[in-house]
Simulated assay, not measured.
Amino acid sequence: MMIIGEFAFYLFMEVLMYSVGRFVIPVISFGRARAARPREIFSRKPLPPHAEDGKLLVPEWGVAIVGLLTLTAAIALYIALR
């Protein structure tokens, strides 16, 4: 049963929250930051803080946290205005 919970948590954080974060980060930073692409995450070289195009790179865990905070704020706003 524990492995099912761990798999569900992984899907929630890595798929749903990462997807939300990838959408939200360029919007809230006005295009000055972007999420690290999977190719950059899984490369052997360390992830630099800035990309070649001058944008700030947000690591995978940061993108998931931004997605989680966005979802939490959206739910709180929905409950407050309901």
Rank of each mutant, 00 (worst) to 15 (best):
M1N: 01
R44D: 12
R34G: 04
G31I: 09
M2E: 06
F9S: 09
Y10G: 07
V15R: 09
E14D: 14
A76F: 12
Y18E: 13
I28K: 01
G62N: 01
M1V: 09
K55C: 09
S43W: 04
F9A: 12
G21T: 02
L11K: 01
S43A: 15
G54N: 03
A51R: 01
R34V: 08
I41Y: 13
T70P: 00
A64V: 11
M1C: 03
A33C: 11
G21E: 01
V24I: 15
P59W: 03
R39M: 13
T72N: 06
R44C: 03
P46K: 10
A73Y: 09
W61K: 14
L69W: 06
L81M: 12
F9E: 10
P26T: 05
V15I: 13
D53A: 10
L69E: 07
E40R: 04
F9K: 11
E6Y: 07
I28Y: 04
R82F: 10
P49E: 06
M1D: 03
R32Y: 06
P59H: 10
V20R: 00
V20Q: 01
G5Y: 09
L16D: 00
V27W: 02
A35K: 10
I28V: 15
L69Q: 04
E14G: 12
G54S: 02
R32K: 14
A80C: 02
I4D: 06
P49W: 03
L56K: 07
R37D: 11
A51Q: 02
H50F: 15
P38F: 05
I41M: 14
A35R: 07
F9P: 00
P26Y: 05
E40W: 08
I3N: 05
E6W: 05
A36D: 00
F30T: 05
P26E: 00
F23W: 12
P49H: 02
I3A: 08
L81H: 09
M13I: 08
A36K: 03
D53N: 10
L69P: 04
R22T: 11
S43D: 15
K45C: 08
V24T: 00
L71F: 15
E40A: 09
A76M: 13
S19K: 10
G62H: 04
V15G: 02
S43H: 10
P38M: 07
R39C: 04
G54I: 08
E6S: 06
A51V: 15
L71Q: 08
A8W: 11
M17N: 03
M13E: 08
V58Y: 01
A51N: 06
P59L: 07
L47Y: 02
S29T: 15
R44Y: 04
V27C: 00
K45Q: 11
K55W: 12
I41D: 08
L57V: 03
A8R: 08
L56Y: 11
E52Y: 12
A80F: 13
